[in-house]
């Protein structure tokens, strides 16, 4: 309904910076699905992903002024807000407590198996499956867990240079994979 309007990227950005409700509604209709997918791949739980998505859109609304087109496309900016918010959630005490409970219930009922499977079959999660194991673990730690290269170097006890090279090589495959 509201999405019958078509914005060019620049028009959309201008309208969002003007705090235009209609443009924001379009943005939500247009991008909430892909951002929710990105969030869900990191936090795993649909309920938590919903909470994160809410925070993400509130932040997009609040911080749209700070978006700089020279540094990348609007979607890239939103993707990074989504990923950072998801990783912040992973590290929050609430999330870690809920995950402990989740593991117990999972063991009893095996609930999240279907969700997990469906998450694995999309986006970068699916891409992970294409990688060699030594690359996969690094992408997992870097992209899905939010660790820095230094931290990964310590966790995996691999030289920092090797971490960088492996991650970059893995990401170069992503470019081909996306084609």
């Amino acid at each position: 309904m509201a999405s019958t309007l078509i914005y060019s990227e620049q028009e959309l950005i201008n309208a969002l910076k003007a705090k235009d409700d209609q443009a924001f509604s379009y943005l939500y209709d247009h991008y909430s699905g892909s951002l929710y997918s990105i969030i869900l791949q990191i936090v795993k739980s649909p309920e938590i992903a919903g909470d994160v998505l809410q925070e993400v859109f509130i932040n997009i609304w609040r911080k749209i002024e700070t978006y700089d087109p020279l540094k990348g496309r609007l979607f890239t900016w939103m993707l990074n807000i989504s990923r950072n918010a998801s990783i912040d959630m992973l590290r929050s005490r609430n999330y870690q407590n809920s995950q402990k409970n989740q593991e117990i219930t999972d063991n009893v009922y095996g609930i999240d198996q279907a969700t997990q499977t469906s998450i694995d079959s999309i986006g970068l999660s699916k891409f992970l499956g294409k990688l060699r194991p030594e690359q996969r673990v690094l992408i997992e730690l870097a992209y899905f867990k939010g660790y820095t290269h230094d931290e990964i170097s310590q966790i995996e006890d691999i030289p920092l240079g090797t971490v960088k090279t492996r991650i970059r090589n893995a990401l170069l495959q992503l470019r081909d994979y996306l084609k």
Binding site: G33, S34, G50, F75, G123, K179
Partner: peptide, 16 residues
């Protein structure tokens, strides 16, 4: 690359 990533992500939507 950004356009590729966006297009790919848009194909992997999950409705919230």
């Amino acid at each position: 690359f950004e356009i590729q990533l966006e297009a790919s992500s848009q194909q992997q939507k999950i409705d919230p």
